[in-house]
Computed example of a mutant assay.
Amino acid sequence: MEIRWSILIIILGSALVTFIPRVLPLVILSRMQLPMGLIRWLQYIPVAVMSALIAQELFISEGQFAFVNNRLDWMAALPTFAVAIWTRSLLGTVIVGLVCMMLLRWFF
């Protein structure tokens, strides 16, 4: 098997570009004492990102606001939201969402 050096360099460069932004902040911030207000603020980032992604999927269709465009999405979202609120488990929420959507697509 022949190694194509250009492809190898692209793969290694991509790995480096992906690795640096993930590890560098972790290394730097692990040695610092962050203020409690900043820590509380950072805890809301995953929720805000997920909310933005879900809201775009549920409320926007073809570039316009559409509240009830896809009933299957809403039928899967409601039990998923309930599990997220009750359990506060990301894994449980993802599993319930996937199973709900899978079953709804299978039946309908």
Rank of each mutant, 00 (worst) to 15 (best):
N69G: 08
Q56H: 12
I7W: 11
F107Y: 13
I95F: 09
G92N: 02
I60L: 13
L91G: 09
A66P: 04
I45L: 05
L24H: 09
Q64P: 00
A82W: 10
P46V: 10
G37H: 03
E57Y: 04
V68I: 10
S14V: 06
F108I: 10
R22L: 13
L8K: 08
M36W: 11
L104H: 04
L26M: 11
W106D: 04
T80G: 01
L24T: 11
T80A: 04
I7C: 01
R88P: 00
I85Y: 02
F81E: 00
A77C: 10
R71L: 03
A76V: 09
S51M: 13
L26W: 05
Q33N: 10
W106P: 02
Q64C: 03
V17L: 14
M1D: 12
G63R: 12
M50E: 11
R105E: 12
R71M: 08
M101S: 01
W5I: 14
L53I: 13
P79A: 09
N70P: 02
W74K: 05
V83C: 05
E2Q: 08
R22G: 14
P79F: 09
Q64T: 07
I9G: 03
F81G: 01
R71I: 08
T80M: 07
L29D: 03
P25F: 05
F81Y: 03
F108M: 11
R88G: 00
T18K: 06
R31P: 00
F59I: 04
F59C: 07
L78A: 15
V17D: 06
I54L: 14
N69C: 04
W86Y: 12
M75C: 08
M75D: 07
I11V: 14
F107K: 06
A77Q: 02
L58E: 14
V23A: 13
L26D: 07
V83D: 01
S89W: 00
L29W: 11
I45D: 06
M36I: 14
S51Q: 03
P21E: 03
A48R: 00
A48C: 08
